[in-house]
Design a protein around this nucleic acid. Structure first.
Lengths: 278, 278
DNA sequence: CGGACTATTTGATATGCATCAAGAAGTCAT
DNA sequence: ATGACTTCTTGATGCATATCAAATAGTCCG
């Protein structure tokens, strides 16, 4: 299996035994099932506590004891909401904090001098953003919400301080960064070696897997991004993305209704993804 | 400027003021100017000391006080030599240590299930390898020496222990990982958006910059890898790499003599790299 | 030194995807 | 609801690079 997917399988394995139900985290932001308090105020210590978060097995506190978990509660300084289309941070912004996604869906993208945009990833609940900023103390990409979102703000100094006190946390921070490196290795393979169909199959399988780890169906998903954003991520034009969706649809592999995708033949997707012989 | 290069510029900036002369580190391994003792034995404490290494401003100890530096000396358990073509580690190997390159030149590559190989990076003196292994406690790629090489073996447990004691080291470890993430972002941009000429120009400029930071000429370099390996890294076939070299040569931008490249028009290379309008 | 191998260059042709174009479908605001 | 906008789909054509092929140059080793 290719590394792009393999990386996420590792991630999934770690949490698979925990019976996570984080459905709320991925639903529309209009959804009111989660408590909605305005950030920076009226946040009871209860509400910003990692120890109480329904994402705790996906997010930074993974594998910590209850004792350590309560130490960790101080790590999240506050929460922040980002409207659809809003920037969580932008390239060039000073880096001070990492962000853990509580609800919503993001894309990260870099922009070259001449204006070409490259989507470098899509992030969902429980995933950490901002790691790109550590190296030069300023952010190196844009993080844009693809739907209304809420993130936990974790000042990086706190993270480092706590990491020095809690080896388990230190290890986890390292793993999160390593996982990102491995993920990007997989994307490099994808971009350099694969054809359009393989790329899109890999993309869908990867999304499905991550959503499944969050309690969603393995056979259905809603794309939060446009064809153009998918294309940017996969190194192809939006027309090619559209055509490839249509082709999969014609072949009875998936059913496409705008942004709603239903997987009809999971195995066939996997076969396409692994195809060397064609 | 594109991020692939920008990332390395940051790295370079950090060390640019230090007057590094690490020429020896990149020369042919036949070169006898560096002491050559067999690993695992007869290594005096003097020889494995970071505090005494001529790469200390490129490598992990960057920015540490002499006090901290001597603490660090215990981090390198031993040194290890790798013959040209030899594997420093392979995908699937248990991960226990990071490696700092002392001399020599490496490639890292991932291999997909169906056997397609993707070169994910080229590493030279002072750079750290093995970060891919942290996430799953086993290596995720192959690290292969492109010339006879010597590396410092740094058990990751030691690195983590010391990181907890030396905040400056902790920060530096984080920066190294973040830099790798940012580098890979740049490669994604390259693979997804650029044409063959732009990719090769970016590749050459990047190598030149890193070599320059190690005391080498900005106008000459020796390629340690084959056209095929360059092609794999850049997502193109070896024939296209060769043709693009020839084209640059015809246009008077570079002079190609096998693996020896002389840069005749650095600015033109940069222009090609930045080209959006063509 | 000579033979076998690997790496590189160059040419001819094929092809997958980009580009250009136009229309359809969906979304949003008033 | 209606018009303006964005997003998506589909078709026709072109091009950059892959593929196939063969010759040349360089390297290794007995």
């Amino acid at each position: 299996m290719l590394n792009a997917i393999a990386a996420h399988e590792v991630a999934t394995d770690e949490i698979a035994t925990h019976e996570i139900k984080a459905q709320e985290a991925y639903n529309q932001s209009q959804d009111q099932r989660l408590p909605r308090t305005s950030p920076m105020q009226a946040e009871s210590s209860f509400k910003v506590a990692c120890s109480n978060c329904n994402l705790r097995e996906l997010c930074l506190p993974i594998g910590l004891s209850t004792d350590e978990m309560s130490q960790l509660d101080g790590m999240v300084a506050t929460r922040k909401k980002v409207k659809q289309g809003g920037h969580l941070f932008s390239s060039g912004d000073p880096f001070t904090t990492l962000y853990a996604i509580r609800t919503g869906f993001f894309k990260t993208c870099v922009v070259s001098e001449d204006g070409r945009e490259q989507v470098t990833g899509f992030q969902m609940a429980g995933e950490i953003m901002g790691l790109d900023g550590i190296v030069s103390d300023k952010h190196n990409c844009n993080a844009i919400a693809l739907e209304d979102a809420e993130v936990c703000v974790m000042p990086f100094n706190h993270v480092e301080d706590l990491s020095r006190q809690i080896p388990m946390l230190q290890r986890h921070v390292h793993k999160i960064m390593s996982r990102e490196i491995v993920r990007e290795n997989g994307v490099m393979m994808l971009l350099a070696n694969m054809r359009a169909e393989e790329r899109l199959a890999a993309f869908l399988l990867n999304l499905l897997q991550r959503l499944h780890a969050r309690g969603y169906s393995k056979s259905e998903l809603i794309l939060r991004m446009t064809r153009e954003e998918i294309g940017s991520y996969l190194g192809m034009k939006l027309e090619t993305v559209s055509r490839t969706f249509s082709k999969f649809s014609d072949e009875g592999i998936i059913e496409v209704k705008q942004k709603n995708i239903r997987i009809l033949d999971h195995d066939k997707l996997k076969t396409i993804f692994n195809a060397s012989t064609c």
